[in-house]
Design a binder for these strands. Structure first.
Length: 461
RNA sequence: GGCGCGGUAGCCAAGUGGUAAGGCCGAGGUCUGCAAAACCUCUAUGCGCCGGUUCAAUUCCGGCCCGCGCCUCCA
């Protein structure tokens, strides 16, 4: 079964296919802003996109997939962070880019083939060039302060993706109390958006030569994706993805810029993954319900458990994350590990045994159905499966069964108690052994006996 | 106010016009000095509420209640 995904623009399920004669699937995934550690909600999107990447490779072959994910390393947040910390922008964004890569690796995400940076001189130039074209064509205008804005009413199709039409007339209660953005006065129309932002004192040393007739400054957020996807993948891409919150205005604006500039369809397929919720609400610093991967591993959870937990819900439905779901994921991974050990090494070509798992994934990325189908087979315990076919499914899901929860360091006093108990047990002094076990349990440690020795595990927080 | 999504067992979560996948937890059992692991068995007459269509609805239609997200730079 060919991969089909929901397309946000047509609102239908559509098969993914290459539009160019070379047969390469051009896949662009909106990446992170590198000013802090990405949280697990961000990683839901990146894990989901990683599964898409893997499914594409399985269907079309690794050589026929070109996966691009940008790094936003120049914007309000990155600049503000660098100014606050008195460090260069490059220094700050390098730090968080490397952290992002490390987290992605821990979550077993394949690296995109290219990860263009918005502040890369090569791509800054591409962005400026694109803005120049938009100015020439009359889709953009300069404001008094030397910024450049996109003229939304110059693009009649604006709003097709988000279906937000005549928004200005519909601004209701939810927006009424919000302050106007600082640059509102510079715009001809409230729905216009910045392509180029003129330098301000608070930007510090961060400024670059702008488009014709504009001041020194920096690119607006949306233009980077339009310019970099064009530079690397060409004017028309086959799949463009991101979190739902990017649907408007980010992706709507990308369409407007790219199509006005290039005169061609920007993306043939749009896919958006839903939010991860924590405690029933979207994660936010103000609610204090924001988790990072580091926080979870510090609690003794493995990154793979997080990956599994993120796949437990349908990617196009909000998923409420809880620490309990992490425990469930760990238990499920353990079962899979044990199941794999029972499988014969030889390949019998039994891929069809797991056919339903792949079919579920290919059918709009139904990860929960796929996991359900997987465990139905695991529970059968029949001998029809083999490791090669099982590993193929693990590849598709990106589950690396070799990764286990990090072992907590055992304090010396715990080791001492365990040694005493082991000695008592060997001497068949079970009363003493049981007392010591209770002490260990009270201290939060479980002592697991084997024939020839023991191991210690810390209770999960 | 506009746009969109969702409400299925203790928790998470698929799904179908013909009577509810799967995971976690829990219970019982086998095994075992104890504990753990492993293995076996069990766990929704029910799918937010009220109507309607139908031989038959959790699944289609209408209304209602509740929750969540987006509405100019949040994945």
């Amino acid at each position: 079964m060919a991969i089909q995904l929901f397309d946000s623009l047509s609102r239908t399920l559509k098969p993914l296919k290459a539009s160019q004669p070379d047969g390469v699937i051009r896949f662009y995934n909106c990446g992170p802003t590198v000013y802090a550690a990405a949280h697990i909600g961000n990683f839901r999107t990146f894990v989901v996109n990683d599964v898409i990447r893997r499914l594409l490779e399985l269907e079309f072959g690794a050589a026929k997939v070109k996966h691009v994910r940008n790094l936003t390393d120049v914007d309000d947040k990155t600049i503000r962070r660098s100014q606050e910390e008195g460090r260069s922008l490059a220094d700050v964004t390098k730090q968080w880019t490397e952290k992002f890569w490390a987290d992605c690796k821990a979550l077993n995400c394949l690296s995109p083939h290219e990860e263009p940076r918005a502040a890369d001189p090569k791509y800054l130039k591409a962005q400026v060039n694109m803005i120049d074209v938009l100015l020439e064509k009359g889709n953009a205008y300069r404001s008094a302060d030397g910024s450049v804005y996109f003229k939304v009413n110059s693009f009649p199709e604006y709003g097709a993706l988000s279906r937000v039409k005549e928004r200005d007339l519909q601004l209701g209660s939810a927006l009424a109390g919000k302050p106007q953005t600082a640059d509102a006065d510079e715009k001809e129309d409230g729905s216009d958006f910045a392509l180029w932002k003129a330098w301000k004192a608070e930007d510090g040393p961060n400024k670059w030569p702008g488009p014709h007739g504009a001041s020194e400054g920096r690119p607006g957020w949306h233009i980077e994706c339009s310019a970099m996807s064009k530079a690397i993948l060409g004017e028309t891409i086959d799949l463009h993805t991101g979190g739902v919150d990017l649907l408007f205005p980010h992706h709507e604006n990308e369409i407007a810029q790219s199509q006005c500039c290039n005169g061609t369809t920007f993306a043939n397929h749009w896919y958006h993954s839903e939010h991860l919720l924590v405690d029933g609400k979207k994660m936010s610093k103000s609610l204090g319900n924001l988790y990072t991967l580091d926080q979870l591993t510090a609690m003794g959870h493995s990154p793979m458990a997080l990956r599994y937990a993120l796949l437990m819900g349908h990617p196009r439905k909000q998923l409420n994350f809880t620490l309990d779901s992490l425990h469930a994921a760990e238990s499920a991974l353990k079962t899979l590990r044990e199941y794999r050990a029972t499988l014969p090494e030889t390949t019998t070509g039994a891929h069809e045994v797991f056919g339903h798992v792949l079919t579920s994934l290919n059918d709009d990325l139904n990860t929960p159905a796929a996991l359900g189908a997987l465990f139905t087979i695991v529970n059968r315990k029949g001998g029809e499966a083999d490791r090669a076919s099982f590993d193929r499914v693990m590849f598709a899901l990106g589950l690396d069964l070799k990764v286990e929860a990090p072992k907590a360091a055992v304090p010396a006093e715990i080791t001492a108690l365990a040694e005493k108990r082991w000695a008592a047990k060997q001497a068949k002094d079970f009363a003493t052994a049981d007392t010591l076990r209770k002490e260990l349990t009270a201290a939060g440690w479980a002592m697991l006996d084997r024939k020839d020795g023991y191991s210690l595990e810390k209770a999960k927080s």
